[in-house]
Design a protein around this nucleic acid. Structure first.
Lengths: 359, 359
DNA sequence: CTGAAAGCGCTTACAG
DNA sequence: CTGAAAGCGCTTACAG
């Protein structure tokens, strides 16, 4: 293991100068910098993160917390975040809650994040007041994505879930549907997030706009997964007088609904229309109409908002990627914390929605 | 930030004793340990990872490298690995190659992993000889999952890809198919892994067993994705004289194939049967026959093989989880490095495969 | 079983 | 623009 002293000796300077030159600090003459860089390269020198962190007080890492990396939305967010984080010279510590309340506490308790990372990104992570207290104690910068819980001082990137749900429901109404069911997340879920509440509200709003009363019998809660969608739909059918359309709170649930309908001998969309939210990679495959949300863009924007203030004093020789990768029309990273940055969604009509059969 | 001195002072012992007590070293009296633990708790003390790493020489972190976290197999592997890694008291640094050759080099080059992690897990990461040299230089323990490239001294967990492909193809042959196409990964892919080569071999083997000659016109290469499957199938149909069955190298390609077939006005399975490999969450939803492979189990087993030797001298108060979570019949972690641990696959017949139409 | 002291490999005021 | 020296907060022989 070659260390900074070796480089200093070879370059004929002090370790302080090596440190400065390698980090690109301005207070080093061009000639010295060249010599240092050459020496470092020749010796294949890599700074020791532990030593650097201890001495410098920065960890060079950020934590990313997601409920379930295997779900489309979270995987897509992590993928875009990962790229930006590494380009910015940071490490990415991944935490997957996996639906376990215990895990959530382990992750959020001060002791574990403290001293480990410079910043935190929470994706769709529900926060109780004890969690907020713990996070406040950390005094770390952070950002939330797709989160109902607002952390004081942290920016938030998300879509307008109420609006997305309203658009989906209006689409079904526009086709002539009146009995429109909603299947959504379970509030008793240990890791319940607020997304499903907003989406239910949008469904209700749209129905009321159309002069309809949301029927509790058509409102079934389950998990935000394929299985959840299957179970919710089976329950819906069990209740009798089935709906002519289902608005599922996410595409995974919608695809589960399609399975359950098929298993029950019902055709989509002839017998029942189905629409989801996300624009999952497979939505196209199964011909699912949906409200597309920009997952990668939300992740990227959140990562920028998190790291841009850190980079500059941050580690790594690169100054971070350029500014040309953000979706047009999105708010600048310097937004007032507390005001969520809302990214747009859009309706995509495929084969799973059609007018109800004439009676 | 409370530090070890604060705890030592409150407990009335030296920092050395605090360090020993907190790490559960045996050379501490029960009474002293109790006092130290109480003091640490009272002060909400958490050891500084940087300081501990620098002084102790262990990083308490492992790196996990996957090609694309958004693909079903890799997401599922990471999810199971993440749980075990954190239970063992380690941090997990995620690297997502994202199909970028440049990224792969950045990750694998010594400078970046060096001094950052105690061990490495490479999932389906193709390695050139320069990479092997770089990894050898690191002198870190590692494990590969689903990898064709063997790293000297590292164990490997995988399925038998040739056998899986043979089983899939035999299933189609057994149904009476003779014109069986194969769609698979692209060897020109920057991050080509060897999985697709094995799966193609299994397809060829099975055909030859049945006295058939693999028809190059029925062997199309594309990406290991939904889009790849769609494109490959479109190409297949463009060539004329379409097959009666398609064996796709993974479920995502198979689902892409189903889309392409549907777009071409062909029904599955009446006109063309389709089978994949994986047992993707959505395979059931679309009724896809497949060769199921145990993704989570491969990840868990690999994580155990990686961490079990480290834990004990490792960080964290826990000794790691019990031994009751491995699939039955799997080899113990103490296997000779170099001999891959092969986990079983199994055929799952759903609605996408059926006998060819009689002529 | 416990402590004093050195040392892990950097970064950072401070001084020049 | 550069260097000498202190210090980041632990762990580890070494000694007792």
């Amino acid at each position: 293991m070659t260390k900074i002293d070796d480089v200093a000796r070879l370059a004929g300077v002090s370790t302080a100068t090596v440190s400065r030159a390698l980090r690109g600090l301005p207070t080093v003459s061009a000639a010295t910098r060249r010599r240092v860089l050459a020496a470092a390269e020749q010796l294949e020198y890599a700074v020791s993160p532990s030593a650097s962190r201890l001495a410098g007080g920065r960890t060079g890492a950020i934590a990313v917390v997601v409920p379930r990396i295997t779900r489309w939305f979270f995987g897509t967010v992590v993928e875009s975040v990962e790229e930006f984080v590494h380009q910015s010279g940071y490490d990415l510590l991944l935490h997957n809650l996996g639906g376990r309340e215990q895990t959530r506490q382990r992750v959020l308790r001060a002791a574990n994040l403290h001293k480990r990372v410079d910043a935190i990104m929470l994706v769709a992570t529900p926060l109780r007041s004890a969690d907020l207290t713990a996070l406040a104690k950390l005094k770390l910068p952070g950002v939330t994505v797709s989160s109902g819980s607002v952390v004081p001082g942290w920016p938030c990137v998300r879509i307008d879930d109420v609006d997305a749900a309203r658009t989906a429901t209006r689409h079904l109404l526009g086709l002539g549907h009146r009995r429109i069911a909603h299947i959504s997340g379970d509030p008793d879920d240990e890791l319940a997030f607020t997304t499903h509440l907003d989406r239910r509200r949008g469904w209700r709003d749209a129905l009321r706009e159309a002069g309809l009363d949301p029927d509790p019998a058509l409102d079934v809660e389950s998990q935000f997964t394929i299985d959840g969608g299957t179970r919710a739909t089976a329950e819906l059918l069990r209740r009798g007088d089935p709906p002519t359309a289902i608005f599922a709170a996410c595409d995974e649930m919608a695809m589960g609904a399609m399975t359950a309908l098929r298993d029950a001998g019902l055709r989509v969309p002839q017998d029942v229309s189905v629409i989801g939210v996300d624009d999952h990679d497979l939505a196209r495959v199964v011909g699912l109409s949906t409200i597309a949300q920009p997952a990668a863009e939300q992740g990227l924007l959140a990562a920028r908002m998190l790291l841009d203030p850190l980079v500059g004093g941050g580690p790594g020789p690169t100054g971070g990627p350029g500014d040309d990768r953000l979706p047009a029309g999105t708010a600048p990273a310097g937004d007032t914390p507390g005001t969520p940055v809302i990214l747009p969604t859009r309706l995509i009509v495929r084969e799973s929605t059609a007018p109800p059969r004439a009676h």
